[in-house]
Amino acid sequence: MNDDGPAWASYLDRAETTLADLAASEGDAIARAGALIATAIADGHLVHAFGTGHSGLLAAEMFYRAGGLAAVNPIFHDDLMLHRSASKSTDAERDPDRGAHVFEASGMCSGDVLVVASNSGGNAVVVDVARRAASAGVSVVAIVSRKHTAAEGATRATEQLTTYADVVIDNHVPVGDAAVTIGDDIRMGPLSTITGAAIVHAIAIAAAECGAGAGAPPDVFTSSNVAGGDEVNARLIERFRGRVKAL
């Protein structure tokens, strides 16, 4: 505990103020990302979601979610996630040679949208996947911490994810993704998952609102634990199963 109260309370306060900052300053970027997604879905394209390590949680958050867009293809690769070997996943995300495989296996094509999250914005795999996507005519929405991308001494690839993004959304997370200090030097309280989840749902909602306003509301999953939910979701699974591998 410090003079301002327990550190856990400070963390929750910091999360609240960070979300408020995000809402106040990222509205235009969220709206533009939503418009890109609405157009892609209306034209029969997919939204691909990608991140490595904990940023990969945002791809999972967008996918097969009650209240989430149905036309979402999450890009999951075991060696870039945490459940096989967390330490090796760090090495893997810095290997630019993996980008080609990730991109080719995703099935991305011109007219699609890629939502890619990377707090640092500098891991080699995400940069290479974004570069390949942009070259293929895929619109790229990047979620990064601008504070981290600009920080001196931050570990990064030669290029930045933001170089290839049509829209950049700042998650407003501090350098190192830790919001509170315990004692003199223990840094804790990551925020990127909290703000990242808020961002991906905000852009999905913006896309749905844009599509509905144009007379083309997108397909949206519902909870399987409400009346009629299984039936709605079964129809959407059947519609997208051939194009979204994880279904």
Rank of each mutant, 00 (worst) to 15 (best):
D230K: 14
S89M: 10
G34K: 03
I203D: 00
A71Q: 04
G67H: 07
G107H: 00
G121I: 00
L114D: 00
V175K: 08
E93P: 07
R98W: 01
F76H: 11
F76K: 12
I237R: 14
R14Y: 10
A117I: 12
G121F: 02
M108I: 08
F240K: 09
D3K: 15
N233K: 07
A60I: 12
T155A: 13
E231A: 15
E16A: 15
E26N: 12
S87A: 15
K88G: 15
D177M: 06
S224E: 09
T181P: 00
A206R: 04
D28P: 04
E209Y: 13
N119F: 04
D185T: 14
V180R: 03
V116E: 01
G5R: 12
F103H: 09
E159W: 07
A15T: 08
V116T: 07
P6D: 06
A20F: 10
A23W: 09
E152N: 11
S55D: 06
H172M: 07
V232E: 01
A207M: 11
F240Y: 13
A66L: 05
A23H: 14
T39M: 05
F103C: 04
D184Y: 04
A105W: 05
I30P: 01
Y11F: 13
S139H: 06
V232H: 09
I75D: 00
G51H: 06
A20S: 15
S87V: 08
R146F: 08
D177L: 05
I182Y: 01
L22I: 04
I143Y: 11
L82F: 12
A29T: 13
T181G: 01
S87E: 10
R65N: 03
S139D: 05
I75W: 02
A40G: 05
D43G: 15
R94S: 07
L12W: 12
R187L: 02
A49K: 07
M1A: 13
A130Y: 01
L57A: 14
S110R: 11
S106T: 03
W8R: 12
D166W: 01
T149V: 14
V226C: 07
V140N: 00
R14G: 10
V141D: 01
M108L: 10
Q160G: 09
V226Y: 01
V141M: 05
I194F: 01
A70S: 02
T195K: 08
V226Q: 03
V232C: 08
V129D: 01
F240E: 03
L82N: 06
T162D: 01
L12A: 12
N123A: 09
A105E: 06
L82I: 13
N73H: 15
K88F: 14
L58V: 09
A179H: 02
D166P: 00
R239Q: 14
N119A: 11
A133E: 00
R84D: 10
T17L: 09
A207I: 04
A130K: 03
A117G: 13
F103Y: 11
V175N: 07
A142Y: 03
S55H: 07
D128L: 13
